[in-house]
């Protein structure tokens, strides 16, 4: 039984097809990584899943409901997103940002309860940001901001996490910590990732996109072969193994 089914989804913007008939499914509890070069349609596919880009064809079914047919509120109670939106001129404190994760659970007259504040604190604790609760969001470093946004997603108490390049702007330690955390949470997760070594290490399954098409899906070892990486990324790759982990090296192709 799949939690998320992406069934022949295409996304078009101004006549350009960014995602082309992609088939994908994510089983409960899995951490699935979406990999592929820049412009391969990773973000567009994720945006179709989290209801920002309406697909031109196909269906996306989450927990038995088509995601484009439920209300925004209901969708947000099941699915939380960490994306790459830059905040404008206004600033909130870190705990206010995380508290926003409670938005889909609140009705018109509901106030923030003691339980909400406790949850916010716990979520900040999970990303090791509790000490920054009172600080202004804009005053944080890129990595700290990313962790706060993950905490906001956790505060939504979702059944499904969508992450668009969550390790961007993070140093190595924080990259490892973040992916470790997501694995530990056990929440079903679909994440676009750049770093193939990290993807191989932390993801249960990978799906590789190239020019909007799904070119491979399966376990990291099945997807990340030297021939495929060479074809999709246009680089020479060697895939080996070290300490039981997949290890990929790259170099430019000889002219």
């Amino acid at each position: 039984m799949s939690q998320l089914i992406v069934d022949g989804v295409s996304v078009e913007i101004e006549g350009r097809r960014l995602v082309d008939q992609v088939l994908l499914d994510v089983a409960p509890g899995q951490f699935v990584g979406l990999v592929g070069p820049n412009g391969s349609g990773k973000s567009s596919l994720l945006r179709a899943i989290y209801r920002v880009l309406k697909p031109s064809a196909g269906r996306i079914v989450h927990l038995g409901d088509e995601v484009w047919k439920v209300s925004a509120r209901q969708a947000a109670r099941r699915m939380a997103v960490v994306a790459q939106e830059r905040m404008g001129e206004f600033d909130f404190t870190v705990d206010e940002i995380v508290m926003m994760g409670r938005t889909p659970h609140k009705r018109l007259l509901d106030t923030d309860t003691a339980a909400d504040h406790e949850l916010v604190e716990r979520c900040l604790g999970q990303v090791a940001m509790r000490h920054c609760a009172g600080r202004l969001f804009q005053s944080l470093s890129g990595g700290e901001k990313q962790r706060v946004l993950v905490a906001r997603a956790l505060a939504q108490q979702p059944e499904f996490l969508v992450l668009d390049e969550p390790t961007n702007h993070l140093d190595i330690r924080h990259q490892l910590e973040l992916l470790e955390l997501i694995g530990r949470l056990g929440t079903t997760t679909l994440a676009a990732l750049h770093d193939l070594n990290l993807a191989a290490r932390y993801c249960d399954r990978l799906a590789m996109l190239c020019e909007g098409r799904l070119v491979a899906a399966g376990t990291p070892a099945e997807v990340l072969t030297a021939e495929r990486i060479s074809a999709v990324y246009g680089v020479e790759a060697t895939v080996g193994e070290a300490n039981g982990l997949l290890r990929i090296d790259f170099r430019l192709k000889q002219q």
């Binding site: 945006r47 989290y50 209801r51 920002v52 209300s71 925004a72 509120r73 209901q74 969708a75 947000a76 109670r77 699915m79 939380a80 997103v81 994306a83 939106e85 830059r86 905040m87 404008g88 206004f90 909130f92 206010e96 940002i97 926003m100 994760g101 938005t103 889909p104 609140k106 939504q156």
Partner: peptide, 19 residues
């Protein structure tokens, strides 16, 4: 609450359940 989310961004507001 919705205005707060809107202030962060349209996309963020949408993923927080705001129509």
């Amino acid at each position: 609450r919705k205005l707060n989310a809107l202030l962060v961004g349209d996309e963020t507001a949408a993923t927080l359940g705001v129509d």
